[in-house]
Amino acid sequence: TTVKVNGTKYKFDTPEEAQKFAKKAADKYNLKVVVDGDDLRVE
């Protein structure tokens, strides 16, 4: 599972880890998590 934040992709072994990271990033930058198929985007 990958998470894309500000054009940078981060790869995670499990969707749970990816979800946690995406949520933290979204909170930090005051953005929202967008599900894109198997991957997540923070925008």
Rank of each mutant, 00 (worst) to 15 (best):
T1H: 12
T1K: 09
T2H: 07
T2V: 12
T2Y: 13
V3Q: 00
K4G: 04
K4F: 15
K4M: 15
K4H: 15
K4D: 11
V5P: 00
V5Q: 01
V5T: 01
V5C: 11
V5L: 14
N6L: 14
N6R: 10
G7N: 08
G7C: 08
G7V: 03
G7R: 06
T8F: 13
K9C: 15
Y10A: 02
K11T: 13
K11D: 07
K11F: 14
F12M: 00
D13C: 10
D13R: 12
D13I: 07
D13H: 09
T14K: 04
T14W: 02
T14M: 03
T14S: 12
P15T: 09
P15Y: 15
E16H: 07
E16A: 10
E16D: 09
E16I: 09
E17D: 09
E17I: 04
E17M: 08
E17Q: 11
A18P: 00
A18F: 01
A18R: 00
Q19M: 15
Q19N: 08
K20L: 12
K20E: 14
K20A: 14
F21D: 02
F21G: 02
K23L: 08
K23W: 07
K23D: 08
K23C: 12
K23R: 10
K23S: 08
K24Y: 15
A25S: 06
A25T: 15
A26E: 04
D27T: 08
D27N: 08
D27I: 09
K28R: 12
Y29C: 07
N30V: 03
N30H: 13
N30W: 08
N30A: 07
N30R: 09
L31P: 04
L31I: 06
K32E: 11
K32D: 09
K32C: 13
K32R: 09
V33R: 00
V33K: 00
V33P: 01
V34C: 07
V34I: 12
V34A: 05
V34W: 08
V34T: 10
V35L: 10
V35Y: 13
V35A: 10
D36H: 06
D36R: 05
D36L: 05
D36N: 05
D36E: 09
G37L: 04
G37Y: 03
G37V: 04
D38A: 12
D38G: 11
D39Y: 12
L40I: 13
L40H: 02
L40Y: 11
L40D: 02
R41Q: 05
R41G: 04
R41T: 09
R41M: 09
V42G: 02
V42M: 06
V42H: 02
